[in-house]
Design a protein around this nucleic acid. Sequence first.
DNA 1: TTCAAATGATAGGACTTCCTATCACTTCTG
DNA 2: CAGAAGTGATAGGAAGTCCTATCATTTGAA
Lengths: 170, 170
Amino acid sequence: MASEHPLPFDPIDRAARIWQDRIGPATTMAAVTNVMRVQQILLSAVDAALRPHNLTFARYEALALLVFSRQGSLAMSVMGRRLQLHPTSVTNIVDRLQADHLVERACHPTDRRTTMVTITEAGRHRQKTATVALTDIDFGLVGLDNAQTSQLTALLTQVRRAAGDFVTDP
Amino acid sequence: MASEHPLPFDPIDRAARIWQDRIGPATTMAAVTNVMRVQQILLSAVDAALRPHNLTFARYEALALLVFSRQGSLAMSVMGRRLQLHPTSVTNIVDRLQADHLVERACHPTDRRTTMVTITEAGRHRQKTATVALTDIDFGLVGLDNAQTSQLTALLTQVRRAAGDFVTDP
DNA sequence: TTCAAATGATAGGACTTCCTATCACTTCTG
DNA sequence: CAGAAGTGATAGGAAGTCCTATCATTTGAA
């Protein structure tokens, strides 16, 4: 993390005001910087809640994806696409989950290139307790009511759609 | 980065629907995941625009901070607080900017512990051209009009204030 | 059918960030 | 005015992510 002691002013807003005087798109810059900073804050809170369970948010997401899959088992490549991760990141994440006995690797029955990842009972249990930890802290998201949270989701989803993050309608 | 080929559905929304059936705070989870993903998208776009100028967003922010400072010179510790970075990250960033002759280190006149960082002419020039590159791509933020961008900033600022990221009113 | 192209996964390396530990220096306190 | 506590910066190390390169396997096209 960064500093323990908060500034007595909003540095992003201050920067936006400086930009305002010099350059046009201060509004955009402010929004982008805010996204970056809030992501840091959320990730920091989430990782802190997950650390006692020996998970990061990335590993937690992978575990949850497996829990929600019908067979508790997915190909590495499928996980990578769903979690929007680089293949090497999937390898790394699965390595660590496997070292912790939360998942196992197995061969695909027909395609000998692909590796299947299966969640273990320990993995299901870990995911469950980690979920409690996360919901207890509201995933680090504080200060918004339900309507505002939905509004935030709507705005960000709009950005992702415009950026080509996914194709069809929501 | 992650995948080149977008999914034919929104994976975050799909996850939210799955959660909906099992656990309460699907809305919160969706918002948080959206923040994470949009941050990735923005950072990726911004870094791609900055790469030809041998800058990352972190280094660009440091450079901009120096440009906007009155003397073009700040203490390492001040930069760390403004940019909300760990001291060692500041050291790393300044190392690289200095290797590229965009900043110089100097001794503080009175406090011999602190190191001052001064922007060079090359640094000012690089910051200027990099800013053009960034504004050309709107900092990667697409799909929102001005009102929505401001709305996004307002929501995220509210989160940061609630999280104690800064203290006074905006 | 056979060979080129695509796909799946991983190894090795670079970069970034953070942490702890350390050393130099300054400020506070008795 | 000494010693303790705090501050500023950096080195070394761990973790995470991405990149390129590689190898095995599968798919597709001539």
